[in-house]
Amino acid sequence: MTGQPLQSVKRPKAKLSWSDPVLRSILFQIIAIAMFATGIWFLVHNTLSNLATSHISTGFAFLSREAGFAIGESIISYGPADTYLRAIAVGLLNTLVVAGLGIVLATLLGTVIGVARLSKNWLIAKLAAIYVEIIRNIPLLLQMFFWYSIISENMPGPRQALHPIAGVFISNRGIKVPGLLGDGLVWLFVGVGLAMLVTILINNWASRRQAQTGQIFPVWRVGLLLVLALPLLCWGLSGQSIIVDMPALKGFNFAGGLTLTPEFAALLVGLVVYTAAFIAEVVRAGIQSVSNGQWEASDALGLKRSLSLRLVVLPQALRVIIPPMTSQYLNITKNSSLAVAIGYPDIVSIINTTLNQTGQAIEGIMIIMAAYLTVSLSISVFMNWYNKRIALTER
């Protein structure tokens, strides 16, 4: 039996109709894009017109001009004859230093307080809880003013400075400590970087060795030995000199050495104390997310509570701790912009001075936004990479 040929079914032609949801969605997207582009064009055109009317030049050519103002604290060499670009670089480095130190110190302090909140000792747990509740509910700016007033007003002058040990002076001008000068410093930093790299490689090897044989290698002891020995070895092989610059009282101030200024100290203490209260809650929540069975299994193996916390509980809690910890690291970086209130020369303070002199407010704000965006994205990328590295992999 021969079947009849199938007849092709004719599809109805598509008609433009407002009742078609696909057509409506496309039109709405086109209208939204057009409105957004029109708004951007209006803002740019209006801004350029106002700048032209006020005879204010645009662009970033001002970065190559002489800055003409001094900066109280600088990691790199800087003088008023340098350019605005170098002044902004000084401010960015100052911001990175206080943010980096703040992240490290706040993590250590917050972890200690978070663990203390879970202590079986009633007094320690209550003191940690009081710290968290008080610090988290006082604005950070007020805390910075508090620490700045304590450091700058309650310390003696340079002539009556406290002198606890040789080469260290504490006064209302800051803390003076001995410094190091000379070309050999570069080789010391090279040695530190090399020691960190070797330690990372040893840690990876020790992890694979422990997974195969169960034997534990003392990575931290070897790493500490490398950090102490390799910089000295690199400096010794380089043949470069290093001079110890001792601070000394000359006139009404100190000369030489390194200075921890009251502004830097107040900013750093304020950021660390404030952020540590939030990190403590993150750590506490992460530890509590680990089931009690892990503690019981550790007890059954005869591990002390401190070893159970360090070797069993915290590694599992990190998977819960890392994501919210990233937000705290971003907060401590962005909150460092409050330094302008107490006179610390961060990037916001220096660009404020720059735009007051040049009138290039838009360019200055764009530089600040780009700097914080770059730093924040870098922190996020690193923390996301670390979070994926410690995440559980399903078999």
Rank of each mutant, 00 (worst) to 15 (best):
L233R: 02
G39C: 15
T374V: 03
S17R: 07
N46C: 05
V312T: 08
F36S: 03
E281T: 08
S308C: 09
A166Q: 14
L85W: 12
N121P: 05
L392V: 09
G223H: 08
V227A: 13
M155A: 02
L6F: 06
F42V: 09
A32Y: 15
V168Y: 06
N154I: 15
G236C: 01
S349H: 12
S308V: 13
W187G: 00
Y78W: 09
A34N: 10
T53R: 10
W220R: 14
Q4H: 12
I130N: 11
A67S: 13
S378I: 13
V198R: 07
V219Y: 05
N204E: 14
A211F: 13
L96V: 09
Q143N: 06
M366Q: 07
A70H: 12
N203A: 11
L185F: 11
N253T: 10
I200Y: 11
S380W: 14
Q294E: 07
S74A: 15
Q29R: 11
S64E: 04
E133Q: 03
L338H: 03
V90S: 03
I365K: 09
S378G: 10
G174T: 03
I351E: 03
L307D: 12
F60W: 05
T95V: 09
W187R: 00
L258K: 00
I379A: 07
I322Q: 00
S349Q: 14
I362C: 10
S152D: 06
I368Q: 06
Y372I: 04
L162Q: 08
A81F: 15
G236Q: 05
K120M: 13
A166M: 07
A67I: 14
W295R: 04
T95L: 09
L228I: 11
M144D: 02
R173L: 14
L141F: 12
F60M: 00
L232Q: 04
T107C: 01
I30R: 10
L27A: 10
T47F: 03
A341D: 04
S291K: 02
M155F: 09
L301P: 00
P156V: 09
L51H: 08
V320C: 04
V375E: 06
L123Q: 14
L180Y: 05
V227E: 12
P158Y: 06
L63I: 08
M35F: 15
R305A: 08
L224N: 09
A370C: 06
M366N: 02
I31W: 13
